[in-house]
Design a protein around this nucleic acid. Structure first.
Lengths: 344, 344
DNA sequence: TCCGGCTGACAAAACGATTGGGCAGACATG
DNA sequence: CATGTCTGCCCAATCGTTTTGTCAGCCGGA
């Protein structure tokens, strides 16, 4: 392992001082250095393929160009990848790096991890939680720039990005309305998380805008997995008059609904249209027919959070924003107009 | 934002030199400092809640206690979370931090990212690829400690961790044999990746050990998704004599097989036992009945890779090892003895 | 008294960058 | 010739640690 090239080596070989090398390579404004010298320094740096040591620079500048993503268990969820990817690519595009830490939900390890990161001179934090919700930011982070991910704070000074659940629920329902459905069921989640209420509200809004009075008999709540979807599905399909379309809280529940429909001898989409939520490709692509669903903007959230965080680190005056990102509908094959004959 | 406490502050307040504080807090061996002074220093450090600045330490020590996980697209795959989580927790347990970078598969950005990380004094690299395979380590990494993840190298000096596909295939097949099945089909992947061949070999081995001559008519190859599983499933179920059990290359194909079985009016597991691979919980838990499958040791791979890497950083003499990690069978409800009556 | 050895600490030099404040020399001006 | 201004560059301090080498004081032995 050969010794790493330092700025001193470049200076020596170019016959100038370390100062000059630094000024040249950083294009320090207001410093007068002849074009000749500039060229020579640059060439030598190139020849030696000199790369400045970021640790030394961090120490001197008191900033590291490193962001930390700390989360409870987010790395465990199926979508984690997209959040992390969005954050990582956004950081990398701007020359920043990303550190990853997860606390497993334990508040005490969380504090310890955050302190470790602060000792590393991390410049800012992304704080992400598993289910988007109102969140108490750890006291340790009070002095550091923070952006929330898939969560928001009561404190408006803390920027955050989360999915627009209401818009997503409305879009899903609107799609069914646009195809001509009037009796549209909702198989909702049992737990009171923001997604549950948001999607319900979106469903209601779409119906009302279409002049349809929401019918509580068409809304069920169950465990948010395939078994829950199956049970609620059976109940709803046996309900009379049966809905021609059902919007499911998520794709897992939709998967259960497919099973229930098969059991009742109903074909999708001819006899029943289905829309899911989450765009879990494993499920949505795997079902027959493919599941039309609503995608969560995970990648976008990660990217937005990083961009916002960097902006606020570089210019602390930037106003805080709490955004809700659009959830787009992803069409596959589980929606047709009611009473439609199979097309092919 | 109050000024951070430095070692100088501690020294000042304890009435000793910076040197002494350092010795005390690091328990530098061979340094004589009275118990009295030790106690005082520690107490002051505590009072001020002093945390050494790791950047300065990294600069001085020329090591950062930071590992980098660089991957092509691994963060995109559904399992990424587990690998990352395993790596992160193992690192954290030892006081190390993890940086994350992914190249999107582009060799050029990969080089750039690696250089950026080396400028940051990263002490070692985990290099992970999407599908485990023999891999050429980028030249940039030649001088740094590296461990491969979900991949291996032709160079035995580079340690690696990957799933033991053969053992996994064998375990899946053995489970079916143990339940009394003799005609066991295999719906394999179309692509020649290590998983394809490994799982096939495991299947063959288990059959031979049970004294069964493998029948090529019972092995099909298809696209490794639900559609592929569906098509191969139909073909295999129409095959005569029909197998009583089928081992699928992965859970997605098994999902397709469920659909094919339903279409032929066959019940799982009464009429057909099914074993998958990957333990994609979204699918395996979502199907009815739950899918018995083989889990990939993603978490363990991440953890093992970090432990190995750290060991080799701290003691470069540690011999290199290329390990294959066990893939355990996860039983759910898709396997019964052939011809069994439904139990309840 | 002088010397050697031990104890308990400290000063200063790194590590590799950035940056504020000089300081020579060239040239113009009066 | 003295003075002033500008150009082009460099010195040295700094960021917060670790570590090497040194040193004052004390005690015991000759």
């Amino acid at each position: 392992m050969t010794k790493r090239i330092s700025i001193r080596d470049v200076a020596l070989r170019a016959g100038v001082s370390v100062t000059t090398v630094s000024h040249v390579l950083n294009d320090t404004p207001g410093k007068r250095i002849s074009d000749e010298t500039r060229a020579r320094v640059r060439q030598v740096a190139d020849e030696l393929s000199y790369r400045p040591n970021s640790v030394a620079r961090s120490l001197r500048l008191q900033r590291s160009q490193i962001l930390a993503l700390v989360s409870d268990e987010i790395a465990t969820t199926p979508h984690a990848g997209q959040i992390i990817l969005g954050a990582q690519e956004a950081a990398s595009k701007r020359g920043w790096l990303l550190m990853l830490v997860n606390s497993g939900g334990d508040r005490e390890t969380e504090r310890a991890e955050i302190r470790a990161l602060q000792q590393r001179q991390v410049d800012g934090f992304l704080y992400a939680t598993m289910y988007h919700q109102v969140v108490e930011v750890p006291a340790e982070l009070a002095d550091s720039p923070v952006t929330l991910l898939d969560a928001r704070s009561d404190d408006p000074r803390i920027p955050s990005a989360a999915p627009d659940e209401v818009q997503g629920g409305q879009a899903a329902t609107q799609l069914l309305l646009d195809r001509g459905h009037r009796r549209i069921g909702l198989i909702n989640n049992f737990h009171d998380i923001p997604a549950t209420e948001g999607r319900l509200e979106g469903y209601h809004r779409a119906l009302r805008q279409a002049g349809i009075q929401p019918d509580d008999g068409l809304v069920m709540r169950e465990r948010s997995d395939a078994v829950g979807g199956y049970r609620a599905g059976l109940a709803m399909l046996d309900h009379y008059p049966r809905p021609t379309a059902i919007f499911c809280f998520n794709d897992r529940m939709a998967m259960g609904l497919y099973q229930a429909a098969a059991e009742r001898g109903l074909r999708i989409p001819e006899d029943l249209s289905v829309v899911g939520f989450d765009n879990q490709e494993l499920i949505a692509d795997g079902l027959r027919p493919g599941l039309t669903t609503v995608a969560l903007p995970h990648y976008e959230m990660g990217a937005w959070a990083v961009e916002t965080l960097i902006r606020r680190i570089e210019d602390p005056g930037t106003p805080s924003e709490q955004v809700l990102l659009r959830c787009p509908v992803i069409e596959r094959g589980s929606v047709t107009p009611p009473g439609a004959r199979p097309s092919g």
